[in-house]
Amino acid sequence: MMQLKCPWCGSRDESEFVCGGTTHLIRPDLTANDATWGEYLFFRDNPKGVHLERWRHAYGCGQWFNVARHTLTHEVLSVYAMTDPPPAHS
């Protein structure tokens, strides 16, 4: 089974985690038009390669954290805090 390294609890089985999808998405201003909101809500890079995503240790400490993971090999390149800037993997 795939394992992820929770920054607080260490390596745990994939089944303890929930993936929250792409991270570093910036919510647009409330006055933004429909196209901007549509882009924010639905449109994604969906890369075949390094993907910066958020995970939650749902069945553990409950904390969110960021992961840089390759979507073809599933290799985890780095785990970093929610407020950290994007790493230079991609």
Binding site: V18, N46, E53, R69, T71, L72, H74
Partner: peptide, 8 residues
């Protein structure tokens, strides 16, 4: 689904 993005 395996609920994380994958091309594997």
């Amino acid at each position: 689904l395996d609920l994380f993005p994958s091309y594997a």
